[in-house]
Amino acid sequence: MKVTIRCYARFRDAFGEEQEREIPEGSSIRDAVLALAGSGPDAELLIDAEKNIRSYVMVMYRDSRIAPADADTISLSDNDLIILFPPVSGG
């Protein structure tokens, strides 16, 4: 199935504004984020050494925030959209 991942701020700089990924049926939000992160040097922006989504990453799915620790428990459907945003800090 196909999912779209939209990125903002630093994540957009690293992964582009919107990316589509082909992932197996039944994949979770975490699987989709891993597919986006890939294995390049920017992967560590999103995931840690244990391949979990970093705790500061804001993951938005169907208007709601998904805690990185719960990203494993939510299965995606075809054509779903996930939004990734790093909290910004400047003023």
């Binding site: 903002y8 701020a9 630093r10 957009r12 700089d13 945003f85 909290p87 910004v88 800090s89 400047g90 003023g91």
Partner: peptide, 10 residues
């Protein structure tokens, strides 16, 4: 609360 970076804000 507001915060900004680059071309983005919250």
């Amino acid at each position: 609360h507001g915060a900004i970076e680059g071309f983005s804000g919250q």
